[in-house]
Design a binder for these strands. Structure first.
Ligand SMILES: [Mn+2]
Ligand SMILES: [Mn+2]
Ligand SMILES: [Mn+2]
Ligand SMILES: [Mn+2]
Lengths: 219, 219
DNA sequence: CATTTTTTTTAGACAAACCAAAAACATACC
DNA sequence: GGTATGTTTTTGGTTTGTCTAAAAAAAATG
């Protein structure tokens, strides 16, 4: 029905539309998919013909209900496999994304049902992202970038906005993981960096680049 | 390096060459791959250019050392995933082949290493077939079709030569699985059927069609 | 409203897989 | 040894999926 490339496009469109604007531009999508706007235009027209996206020329794209369903199924599979890799096969959280990119395209729905059961119906993946259920529903708490959190607040890390190994390794190094509690001590006007204290009283300073990608929930 | 279709071809060539003749004919391969001789000729030429098969026109194909290595890696992955599906996800032995056909093409070698470890380094898949190690070595006991076994012999079922759901379901129904011990009571000249008694003293008669596909080792 | 930027279309390319029909070949029988 | 027979290869072509450079069109900007 849908090739794995088409599935990847739908996932990317869904992702970008969640993140930023209502409508996803051709150029933004081209950058995300590491390809050219012309290729994106081609594919988007194809997906539109298949009713997987809503698309008006020059107006950007959005997943249709059908497209959203497909995207969420792929996301569900991706995240469940990530849990499997970390919980069962002892991978580290920065090692699983690439492998899950392949596994997410395995078709069998029964496989995913059984995998979900085997993993104990997890609600979040190793990066703190929620796992949609079979119907595409998932609970979302109102998380925010650490960057946007007030001085004096106490917060808990519940996710990351950048799952690159570089960032995840950095977090490991400074001692931050999903569930880490922290308090914001100060923001430095000069360079936008933030002084925070982790639950075990460890004091660190983190850059704005890190702070925008660290998602927290306020206590 | 090799597409999943190429991997499937190599697996099929290896399989046919193990089974029957030294050299695999175009027609035999076409039948196995459910395609036409013309397509096979095409692909075989391509694989030959890539040094994955030894091939002389009109003389049939064989996997090269390189091709054998690839085939055995795919077979290893296939069988490990089958063990995973049956042992961990509670699939039945007749349900796993299709899914493993997809999973066997996932690339990460580390994934397979960890999976092997997670499964406790199994030596055989759910159908009794040996799982090659990382270097492509596997132990093979001298199994034979039940068909070729003498009246009066006692034997243990160690594999099947046909993994189709139809056959596996039939075996479930009559109470035969890997490890079942049985004794051969009689062969009926008339239709080639065999009377056997299973370990729990259950007496059954099985057709030649079943007997050729049931692999046993004599005690 | 004119210039710049963004987006789309056009026109073409490539690669992987597939197949029907024609041609070439091997070999087995007379 | 010649010829009929079945097998294999080649030819020529299709489909699907993806990609790009460059031209054209639309939108945004000042
Ligand atoms: Mn991921
Ligand atoms: Mn993730
Ligand atoms: Mn199998
Ligand atoms: Mn098997």
């Amino acid at each position: 029905m849908f090739s794995y490339v088409e599935e990847n496009y739908l996932k990317a469109i869904y992702h970008l539309s969640q993140h930023g604007e209502t409508s996803v531009s051709t150029n933004a999508l081209a950058e995300e998919m590491k390809t050219t706007p012309a290729s994106v235009s081609d594919m988007v027209r194809k997906l539109s013909k298949k009713k997987a996206v809503d698309y008006q020329k020059y107006r950007g794209v959005n997943v249709s209900n059908k497209g959203k369903e497909i995207a969420l199924k792929v996301i569900r599979k991706h995240r469940l496999w990530e849990v499997f890799l970390v919980d069962k096969l002892k991978f580290k959280w920065d090692e699983v994304h690439e492998i899950a990119e392949e596994l997410e395209h395995i078709k069998s729905p029964l496989l995913i049902k059984r995998l979900d059961e085997f993993l104990g119906f997890p609600k979040h993946d190793p990066h703190g992202d929620p796992i949609p259920d079979e119907d595409g529903n998932f609970s979302s708490v109102k998380k925010q970038p650490l960057q946007d959190t007030e001085v004096g607040a106490k917060a808990t890390v519940i996710g990351v906005d950048d799952s690159s190994p570089a960032f995840l390794k950095y977090l490991d190094k400074v001692g931050i993981s999903i569930g880490t509690k922290l308090s914001i001590e100060d923001k430095n006007e000069f360079d936008g960096s933030m002084d925070i204290v982790l639950e075990e009283s460890k004091a660190i300073t983190i850059s704005p680049a890190a702070a925008v990608n660290l998602l927290v929930v306020i206590e």
